[in-house]
Amino acid sequence: MSLEIDSITKRFRGSAGAAALQGVSLTAPQGAFVALLGPSGSGKTTLLRILGGLDFADSGSVRFADVNWLAVPARDRRAGFVFQHYALFRHMTVAKNIAFGLEVRPRSSRPSKADIAGRVQELLALVQLDGLGTRYPSQLSGGQRQRVALARALAIEPRMLLLDEPFGALDAKVRKDLRIWLRELHNRMGITTVFVTHDQEEAFAVADLVAVMNAGRIEQYGQPDAVKRAPASAFVQDFIGAGAPA
């Protein structure tokens, strides 16, 4: 059940410049926590959206869970996607947001109302938001919204967790707390996770494997220590050096 990304290319329609992704390949074992690290425009979010089924690759393949992953429609992938700006359903309460993925299942596989309510309570406890189920997203802080988004993605028992700059809009203290908490959660649940960030400190702190991306290519891919110790290119050295004063 490992994740095998092979030679993905993607060019956005109407853009005359270089392709967004120019043959990206990487392999990660089941349950790995992979960070896609790079400056804006390096293609990391595009790759994440392709994994989530929200964008489509021009060529290349992805194998995951022993299937041709790109042939599975987005709604059947059970890929829990957490968006940069949370994308919570503004007109629904927190509980309704979390229950959404269960309530839209076809009747045959939909849990009972009581089961859904129970599951929502469990998830609220998991993300430490007990008692906030009746609030609307607009009544929550940024960090709380992010955890609702995560609970909503976890509700569908995702086979893969995709996080797009999940802490990008939060202040430094909350960022740090949340990323420690996220790593612990990952250790407990073991869901294969791909995490997009432009913050190298964050990537090295949480991920098992870091892919440093630049201009639609992976410059270097490996364990955080290896990448830090031996940057494979001038770009990697510059990028990870810039934010980490020794």
């Binding site: 089924g53 709604r75 996607f81 919570l88 503004r90 839209v104 993605a153």
Partner: peptide, 25 residues
């Protein structure tokens, strides 16, 4: 499009995304 994309990735069909997410908002 974020909220519709979220709905689709959570398993909603296009119609369900429209009637449960787009229309209410």
């Amino acid at each position: 499009r974020d909220e519709e994309e979220a709905a689709i990735s959570l398993g909603a069909s296009g119609w369900k995304a429209f009637f449960r997410i787009t229309l209410p908002s």
